[in-house]
Design a protein around this nucleic acid. Sequence first.
DNA 1: TATTGTTATACTCTATAACTATA
DNA 2: TATAGTTATAGAGTATAACAATA
Lengths: 163, 163
Amino acid sequence: MQASADECARQVLEVVPLIMRTIRIEMRSHRLQDISVPQFRTLAFLNGHGGASLSEVAEFIGLTLPSMSKMIDGLVARGLVTRQTHAGDRRRMTLALTPAGQSIYQSAHMATQACLAQHLDALPLSERAAIVQAMQALHPVFIPNPNREAEPEAALEAALESK
Amino acid sequence: MQASADECARQVLEVVPLIMRTIRIEMRSHRLQDISVPQFRTLAFLNGHGGASLSEVAEFIGLTLPSMSKMIDGLVARGLVTRQTHAGDRRRMTLALTPAGQSIYQSAHMATQACLAQHLDALPLSERAAIVQAMQALHPVFIPNPNREAEPEAALEAALESK
DNA sequence: TATTGTTATACTCTATAACTATA
DNA sequence: TATAGTTATAGAGTATAACAATA
């Protein structure tokens, strides 16, 4: 009962939104980058999945197609993302980060990670070790569509094809 | 280096938004309750801090005063929250859940927790134990204004005074 | 004068429904 | 006919700036 799935879920539901609050406030505070959490997550996905389609990004982030389409509109308008029709299947969009998008993503990532690290620095090593272990356990449980992760080269090929 | 604050932060930043995605999608899927994550968090806070002021809720959730004011507008209009002027200081608002608000909060909480528990059920006990330990370590680090938590009776008094 | 909230305004996030283009 | 995206429309979430009321 100490770590039943239900007790575990209760704690996750209590603590995870608290951490998100810190992440969101930290991102908002950086006026230079000025990107929201959903935008950041989209850039992060495209950073690791260059050439992904709109559907793939929407699925991963958890948005509907129209919502993601609109969000990409904004990122393209700001020069952070490129959107091209896929060479092989002209219904599909091929999305990728521009150098500016990569740059903004990197700096936002570093700033947010540093902010979190500052909080975590107060904890003893044993607790940080438990956190790392917990995150490693949680990651596969909550990652969407793990089957897509099994073919990392598919996205790359798509990116190359579109040139 | 295995569990440096920075490595720990990196993993938290990767995994926590993934969990939030699941929580958000789960909440959206329940049309009966139909409340968003920020609304849920506000109800949760008021459930434990009956009689809190607008500023207190805004601080905890991490919103500005106008944003929270507007959100409370919506919750009051839906009959989930009561908003009265504080008897002692008429600038302040005294907020609390209505019975309907309590009911919706409870059922949304149970449904979301059950959804998370279902995911976590697949993990071995040792990993769930690490997750519980990690959440307990993270909780105090990310909770806002821990000084206010030291006076749990303050909110109650305010609630009584306002009658 | 400082504090607590609200109103005004604007932009992003998000959804559903209806549509276009391609396969 | 099915799939990938976009457009139209609407509502919630969020911010800043300006304001009103109270202390």
